[in-house]
Nucleic acid binder design. Structure first.
Lengths: 240, 240
DNA sequence: CGTTTTCTTGATGGATATCAATTTTAGTGG
DNA sequence: CCACTAAAATTGATATCCATCAAGAAAACG
């Protein structure tokens, strides 16, 4: 197997604190794997035998309940650590990770986690930050589901997606991977029907531009207003 | 200020991996603080200058949105690490922690976090586990809010509370701190009215026993059935 | 070009928020 | 110890958001 070039990862937060020699050493323990669109990196409930760093592409992380309802937990983008079940002392993956587009990831054996952790304390920091910011996001979602109604939640979800995986196009900002109404519904706790209605209405108002598995935000500002239920937002600075 | 006795904390997961001398050293850097019922350990938005270990008592962690709606994020019980904002690279506390009963916590300066982390790798592990299991819990809540209706969510919330902070009494299991209908509503994304109606109905069926800021679970099994929407649960083993 | 997947749109019903009024309980100070 | 007050809880009536049911159109795919 071809070894991974240091330059691909050197400026990721996870590797930032390490000397080049250390980076090489860490990379030597990993192998790089290609995941074609639609394939699973790991399945919910499977033994957590690896942890990963996504080099290229986008993954959809989904979870099914005991009763069989499916939800989209989040999307993983390039540069992110994922599948770190071992770090949280889980023996099995709590969710399934599916490639939303053709993707490439580095895989380390879970068994080396503890050794690597003691050898590279910066790995602990970056894992903590990864998990920590995921916790922040998830708690934000709980607040949204508690306090907001569907239209606001969908607006929030799209804005988050655009921030995380938005690609500038002339019409606005396009979400950089195929995403269906059903996917958005599973992220926001609603149905594809309601999402479809909302997007149709927004399209008429020039807020978004739709398509099959495709969403472009045309007016992020007005979406922000909708998301916050806040009529004054347009007059304020972008990041208060 | 009196120093903290090692025996109080030696068997907590956070200290388990450390030698007695190390435990003492860690404790020497902390100070112990009393928080009377109703007082705040820290406030949402305040500079995150300490992280904590709860020695005794119960805290309610709450968060208010931009629009002013309040939610209960979780309850902290004895032995738990909390306020570890620094570990997730947050400079300010993302929520408020209020003593639900008279409580005692150990406080370390956030500034020593990174030094302690490198010195005691087991601290990293235990912080990761703390944050990780919190993430699991929060994601479970998202799934519940997406897929379940209010009655199921309330059942889940009470079962979780009983597991975390249940005290065996002759009538069943009592939640070991004062908790109002409003609090339960803020945990489950509903209103105190709906919670009140649900608890009243359950009381008539002998599932729970209520009171002012007081909830006793009389039949955890049947509550489990309600929570899972699963008529077969009564015939199965407690932990599948 | 048929088949499947995704998306759209209308009609209806139901769960639960909201509005409104009391009652119960605990705490406080005279 | 008891009246007074504030906080918490209960319960009914009404309104509404959105899930569900239903049908079909549009887009992709082999």
């Amino acid at each position: 197997m071809a070894s991974v070039d240091r330059s691909l990862v050197a400026n990721l937060p996870m590797f930032a604190g390490l000397a080049p020699a250390e980076q090489d050493e860490l990379l030597r323990e990993a192998r790089s794997i290609r995941y074609p669109k639609g394939s699973a990196v790991f399945d919910q409930g499977a033994k957590a035998d690896h942890f990963y760093l996504l080099l290229h592409g986008h993954l959809r992380v989904e979870k099914v309940t005991l009763q069989g309802q499916q939800s989209v937990v989040r999307y993983v983008s390039g540069g992110e650590l994922f599948g770190v079940a071992q770090a949280m002392n889980l023996t099995h993956y709590p969710a399934t990770a599916v490639a939303a587009v053709d993707s490439i990831a580095l895989a380390w054996p879970s068994s080396s986690w503890n050794r690597l952790l003691t050898k590279y304390p910066s790995l602990a920091s970056s894992a903590l930050q990864t998990v920590g910011s995921r916790l922040q996001d998830t708690q934000a979602r709980v607040l949204e589901m508690s306090n907001e109604q569907v239209e606001q939640r969908v607006a929030h979800a799209l804005l988050r997606l655009a921030k995380q995986a938005g690609r500038k196009v002339d019409a606005g900002v396009e979400i950089d991977f195929p995403i269906s109404r059903q996917d958005v519904a599973e992220m926001t706790g609603t149905t594809l029907h309601t999402v479809s209605r909302i997007l149709s209405a927004w399209e008429q108002q020039g807020l978004v531009e739709g398509g099959r598995q495709r969403i472009v935000l045309r007016d992020a500002n007005r979406l922000h207003v909708l998301a916050e239920g806040d009529e004054g937002a347009l007059n304020r600075k972008p990041n208060p």
